[in-house]
């Protein structure tokens, strides 16, 4: 096989296409659609029941990797071992919780020939839930007031300061709208047991949930921005259907974020749009959202663009997209022979 025929090898995580899905399956699908050359997708899975391992047309091969808590050194050694077999060109981590490790080892991966397109620690920390309010204050962006707490006793005072309802959030995932002190206490226990401390308590903003998926070039320019309104929201707060919007204010907000942080890579802005058209930033996630395939459907394939940028290609900023494009998520029962499940469970690859 000549060098030109060799497929580009893209490794990615986030294959848990469940009711609170990781973005991996959508990213893989978009990468396959958007690159004008053969692609080989290497899945990196944490658990043996992540659907993306078994779905047809998503991963050519999947390897099990250790949880982020194992630290960057373990991750590096695992990726290096996979790279020796697969010759990975680009790696795309898709979970917030694993990004610290991936950013840490990115230079060493680069030395092995594995490219990535990730934010720096400085960028990553700027949008952290713990710093977001200050970030908004500094750059003139609306962010609800919040406070990180380590003790349940602090809820009483915050209830008086913010009023009810208020939002109780985990450091990485999960948010509960609490209407009483008792509900807030229950959410504190539940979320801290799962994700640890601190717990973030945030002022509640009433409005319509809109999101932005975007891609920054690392030099202060946004290569792509796609605004979306959630049309159907699950009990876990996830968009099960959404529609692309034509909203200049949202686009300007994303441009401003990219300009001030010089963001490199994909990100998602979760926004509450009030009846007065104010855009309150609820969260900024440092990776593509699970609905990222909509960006490809609307004419701006962000994951494929990220792969090109990671490989050193200059990708010009997109100038238009289709508003009024919907995504509608669905569930599907895969039938999988037990031998495939055994193969992945016992040997850590499929």
């Amino acid at each position: 096989m000549s060098e030109t025929q060799r497929p580009i090898v893209v490794a990615l995580t986030g294959l848990n296409a469940i009711d609170s899905p990781g973005p991996g399956v959508a990213v893989a699908r978009a990468v396959r659609d958007g690159l004008q050359q053969p692609v080989r997708i290497i899945g990196l899975a944490y658990e043996n029941l992540e659907p993306g391992i078994y779905m047809d047309g998503i991963c050519d091969k999947t390897y099990q990797i250790s949880y982020p808590a194992a630290g960057p050194e373990v991750l590096y050694n695992v990726i290096k071992a996979i790279h020796e077999k697969e010759k990975i060109d680009v790696i795309i981590p898709n979970f917030d919780a694993e990004l610290y490790n991936f950013i840490t080892i990115a230079p060493r991966l680069k030395a092995l020939g594995i490219n990535s397109f990730l934010p720096s620690f400085e960028m990553f920390d700027a949008r952290d839930k713990l710093n977001l309010y200050d970030f908004g204050q500094k750059h003139g962006l609306l962010v609800p007031k919040d406070k990180a707490i380590y003790s349940i006793n602090d809820l009483v005072q915050l209830g008086e300061d913010f009023g009810y309802p208020l939002v109780v959030k985990g450091k990485y995932y999960e948010a509960v709208v609490a209407y009483t002190l008792e509900q807030a206490q229950k959410a504190f226990y539940k979320i801290s047991a799962k994700w640890g401390l601190p717990i973030i308590v945030q002022q509640f903003i009433d409005g319509t949930e809109v999101n932005i998926a975007a891609l920054g070039d690392g030099e202060g320019n946004a290569t792509s921005i796609i605004p979306m309104k959630k049309m159907y929201i699950t009990d876990k707060g996830k968009a099960w259907a959404g529609i692309t919007l034509e909203d200049e204010a949202m686009i300007q907000l994303a441009k401003k974020f990219v300009a001030v942080t010089k963001w490199r890579g994909g990100f998602e802005v979760e926004i509450m749009k009030t009846a007065k058209d104010e855009l309150y930033i609820m969260e900024i996630n440092p990776r593509f959202p699970a609905w990222i395939y909509l960006s490809a459907g609307a004419g701006q394939n962000q994951p494929a663009s990220l792969v090109k940028m990671a490989m050193g290609e200059k990708v010009p900023a997109f100038t238009s997209y289709d508003s009024g494009k919907l995504f509608i998520r669905y569930s599907w029962d895969l039938i999988v022979d037990v031998s495939r499940f055994q193969q992945f469970s016992a040997f850590g690859s499929l």
Binding site: T208, M228, K229, I243, T244, L245, E246, D247, S323, G324
Partner: peptide, 13 residues
Amino acid sequence: TNEFGFVFNPATG
């Protein structure tokens, strides 16, 4: 809009 009376506001979805 379309001929069947469907109206869509792309700014609000």
